[in-house]
């Protein structure tokens, strides 16, 4: 166990080991103006954090930034993250992080709604009638040129349900390979469904680490694991 909890989080704050994030899920076109306004507010106060910035902080204890760091995070791999959120971030000069459910992208378009409903991927009312709900791998390739794309498992899977070699390949290993193939860059971090932290299960922890991920992102922490 890693001793995660209130005391550890308070110590991290006190010692300056923290970063601001804002977690988003759906970013439908109907919310574009509100999202732009909100992100512009953050961009006026903070510098967005790249992988290189995060690595530098872990290496030196210093942020190579002029202002406090901030990470806008867009979860799941929704098409609206590619068509709405990413362009707004580009417009504002923000680097965002995109944890994507890789099999959602692989899913044939006519089956994406059923896949979402079966895998705890929340859809918004105004998009239910759309054919495509997930971003494409071409979108990932494009986003990955300016932003950080990481796997959020293959199927939006819970840690406790990944038990077999086949599960590991589908939920942990292949997602990393697919993201890296699409972006041509390292997929440095892994995120479980429900943001389960590293330290919960040594077996699954080992699989995540052995796959080559260097960070695990949880609900309350970013953990450097390798």
């Amino acid at each position: 166990m890693t001793g995660n909890g209130f005391a550890q989080h308070r110590a991290a704050l006190r010692e300056g080991r923290y970063v601001r994030v804002v977690n988003y899920h759906n970013t439908p076109e109907s919310m574009a103006d509100a999202l732009r306004h909100e992100l512009a507010g953050y961009a006026a106060s903070f510098d967005s954090v790249t992988l290189e910035h995060l690595d530098a902080f872990y290496a030196t204890g210093r942020w190579p930034l002029e202002r406090p760091g901030f990470i806008p995070v867009f979860y799941e791999g929704y098409l609206n993250n590619a068509t709405v959120a990413a362009p707004i971030c580009d417009e504002l000069g923000l680097v965002a992080w995109f944890p994507i459910i890789t099999r959602f992208l692989d899913c044939p378009v006519p089956e994406q709604r059923a896949f979402a409903e079966a895998h705890d991927i929340t859809l918004v009312e105004e998009e239910l009638s759309r054919d495509r709900l997930a971003m494409t791998w071409d979108d990932v390739a494009e986003i990955g040129q300016r932003h950080v794309v990481v796997p959020h498992t293959g199927s939006h899977e819970e840690i406790g349900r990944v038990r077999t070699a086949e599960d590991v390949e589908r939920e942990i290993v292949r997602p990393r390979r697919d993201v890296e193939r699409a972006t041509g860059r390292e997929a440095p971090a892994f995120v479980w469904l429900r943001g389960t932290e590293y330290g919960t299960s040594p077996v699954q922890d080992g699989w995540v680490r052995d796959t080559g991920y260097r960070y695990q992102i949880s609900n309350t922490m970013i953990q450097r694991i390798a």
Binding site: A12, N26, R224, I225
Partner: peptide, 23 residues
């Protein structure tokens, strides 16, 4: 599902190479 959730994430090291003290 459609609004941002601000958080402060702790930055932890589990590799045995602790983050140097923040100055």
């Amino acid at each position: 599902e459609r609004e941002g959730i601000p958080m402060y994430l702790a930055l932890e090291d589990l590799t045995g190479s602790p983050v140097p003290p923040v100055g």
